[in-house]
C-alpha cells in the first residue's frame, strides 16, 4: 500500500503513522457520558470507504486525510489537514 502524499509523492505506508477515523469530534463537555463514550471507544468500522488520518512522520511531518477502501486498500483521495501555508507547516 502506497499513500500519495500531496507534499512528498507516492510513499510506502510504513513512512506514516495511522491516526484512525478522521471525523471523530472531541466532545465539548467535560463530563464523561455518552458523547465521550462515543468519541473514545465506539467506531463505525466500515467495510468500504473510510476517511482516516495518517501522519507522514518520515516525510513532510504533516497530518493527512486519506480516503481509502478497507476492502481493497485502494486510496481515492488524500489531502493535508492544514493548508500548505499554515504556520504549522513552516515549523515542520
Amino acid at each position: 500500500m502506497r499513500i500519495p502524499c500531496p507534499h512528498c509523492g507516492d510513499r510506502s505506508h510504513d513512512e506514516f503513522s495511522y491516526g484512525g477515523a478522521a471525523d471523530r469530534r472531541r466532545p465539548t463537555t467535560a463530563d464523561f457520558g455518552p458523547e465521550w463514550l462515543d468519541y473514545v471507544y465506539l467506531r463505525d468500522n466500515p467495510a468500504g470507504l473510510h476517511r482516516e488520518l495518517w501522519y507522514h512522520g518520515s516525510g513532510c511531518r504533516c497530518w493527512l486525510i486519506v480516503e481509502r477502501n478497507t476492502l481493497s486498500h485502494a486510496i481515492t483521495a488524500v489531502h493535508a489537514v492544514l493548508p500548505a501555508s499554515s504556520p504549522a507547516m513552516e515549523d515542520a
Binding site: M1, S12, H13, D14, Y18, G20, A21, N45, A47, H50, E52, R68, T70, L71, S72, H73
Partner: peptide, 17 residues
C-alpha cells in the same frame, strides 16, 4: 498492520518487520 482493513491481505512493510 495497523490500519482498518477487511481485506484478508496485508502489506509488505509488516512482512519485512
Amino acid at each position: 498492520d495497523g490500519y482498518n482493513s477487511y481485506a484478508q491481505r496485508g502489506n509488505l512493510p509488516t512482512i519485512e518487520d
